[in-house]
Write a protein that binds this DNA or RNA. Sequence first.
RNA 1: GCAGACGUAGCUCAGUUGGUUAGAGCGUCGGAUUGUGGCUCCGAAGGUCGGUGGUUCGAAUCCACUCGUCUGUACCA
Length: 505
Amino acid sequence: MAKKPNKLKARLPRGFVDRSAEDIRATDEMLSQIRAVYEQYGFDPVETPAFEYTDCLGKFLPDTDRPNAGVFSVQDDDEQWMSLRYDLTAPLARHVSENINEIQLPYRTYRAGWVFRNEKPGPGRFRQFMQFDADTVGAPGVQADAEMCMMMADTMEALGIPRGQYVIRVNNRKVLDGVLESIGLGGEENDERRLTVLRAIDKLDKFGIEGVRLLLGEGRKDDSGDFTKGAGLGKDQAEFVLSVVMNERFVEGEEEMALDQANRKTPGFSEGFAELDLIRDVISSCGYGEDRIKIDPSVVRGLEYYTGPVYEAELLFDVTNEKGEVVQFGSVGGGGRYDGLVKRFTGRDVPATGFSIGVSRLMTALKNLGKLNTSDVSAPVLVTVMDGDVEALGRYQKMAQDLRNAGIRAEMYQGNWKKFGNQLKYADRRDCPIAIIQGSDERDAGEIQIKDLIEGKRLSEEITDNITWRESRPAQITVKEADLLTAVKGILESHAEDRKRASEG
RNA sequence: GCAGACGUAGCUCAGUUGGUUAGAGCGUCGGAUUGUGGCUCCGAAGGUCGGUGGUUCGAAUCCACUCGUCUGUACCA
C-alpha cells in the first residue's frame, strides 16, 4: 500500500439529522395520538408538497444578493424560483385558493409534514423539522379560534401531558395593535418601531420585566456584552405598554382593567377585548378553566400574517438537556387567525384560523417527562443457521415464516452462518428475545432448541468461567418440532409479563 | 449576522517551556472457543493532531486566515 486514496468524508449537512428506529416509532406514535384528536373534532387530512413556487410562500423573493436567506430556493429549468416550504400554513392557503370552488367552506383540515428553514441551527433547532397543523378556513367568528385552543389543550393531554403541566395562552393582535396606536406608533411610517416593540414584549419570559423595559427604551446589554438597540420609547409610552402586557386583571376582561388610561383606548383595542371576551365565554362554558387556557396579554406570536386572536402552547415543567441542565424551552406550538392569507390569491375574503404543533420539539420535551412511548416493538426471534445446504436453509426460512404467520416477529440469520458464536452475538446485540437452534442432532430427533436469551443473560451473571457457561446452555429448552410455536409464544408472553411487572414496580 | 470558548483514534480524553516513532480507556475486528451470547486472556486495525498558509533547525503545541462545534445575542415569515 503506497499512498492512501483520499476517502470521501461522509457527513450530514449541518442542521439536519438522521432519525433512529426509536425516534421514528416514537414519532409515529405521537402523530397517531394527535391525529386521533383532530379527527375527533371533525378535521380531514390534506397534504401539499415540500416545494412551492417562491412567490406563493410569502414575501421572500430570492434576490441576487441572498437568494436563500431564510428559505432553501432553487431555480426551475423554466427559471421560476421554487422554495422548500418553511411552514404548512402558506401552502395550505395556496391549496385552498387553487381549489376554492371545489372546497366546501368552512374547511376543517389537518396535516403533518416536514418544513425547512435556512437558518442557524442549534441544539433542538434543526433546518428540517416536522409540524402538525390544523386549520379552519372560511370561519370568520372567533368561536373558531376558541375551538382551536380547546383542541390544542385536548391534544396536550392526549399526548400524556398532565393538566397543570401545560397552558394555552391566548391574546389578540388587535389589542396589541391598539396599544401601539394609542402611544402614537400607528401608521406605516412606524412599522419598524412597532416590530421592535412586539419583539421586546415577546421576550418577557426570557428577560423578565426589567429586560423588556430596557428593550422598550434605549436597549439592553446581554451577558456576552453585546448591545441590543431598543425601541426608543419614552418612559410614559413604555410604562403604558408594560401596564397592559403585565396587567393581571386583563384576564378578567376589559371592564376590569381599571386603567386610568381609558382615554387611550382605540377601536381596535376594544374590538380585541370583545373577541377575547367571547373566547373566554366559549371555553369556560365548555369547562376549560384557566389552568388549561388562559388569556395572557404578553403573547405576541410571530409578526407577519396574524390578524386577530393568537395562541401558544407552553409547557410548565422543566426540560433538561443531555447534561441535565434546565433549558429555556419556549412554546411547543401555536397559531392564530390569518384573515388575509387566502385573499392574496383569490381577492375574496376567506378568513381562517389554525395552529401548528412543533412535533420534534414536543418530542424532546415528552422524552423529558418520561411520557414518550418508548416502543414496545420487541426485536425479532432469531432462527439460527447450523447447516448451509439448500434443504436446511429452506427449513430455517420456513421456521421463520411459520413464526411470522403466527404473528411473531422473526428473522433467519443472514450473515456468515459458519461461525455459530457470531449468530448468538448478533442476536444478543440486536436484543433478540429468543434464538431458535436446530442442528443435525436435533433434526434427527425431530426436535428444536429454544434459547431464552433474556433469561440466559440474567443467569450469566452467576457464571464466571466460560466452559461452564457454554456447556450448561443456560435457559435453553428442547421441544418437539410441532411444539415450536406454542413454546415460543409462551416465552414471549412471560417476557411481556416481566416487563409489565418491572414498569409497574 | 455579532461576540466568546473549543476542535488530538469510532467515542471520552491525556500529551510538560516548541524536541525523536502522538498515547490511554472504552468500542471495533481476529484468536484462545469448527455446535452456544456474558466474563477473562492474547493480538490487530484504526490519526493528513479540523483545513490552508506562516514563524522555526524542529509545530499537536506559536501566529494569521478558514471550516466546524458549543454558549450568549440578533433574526425566525
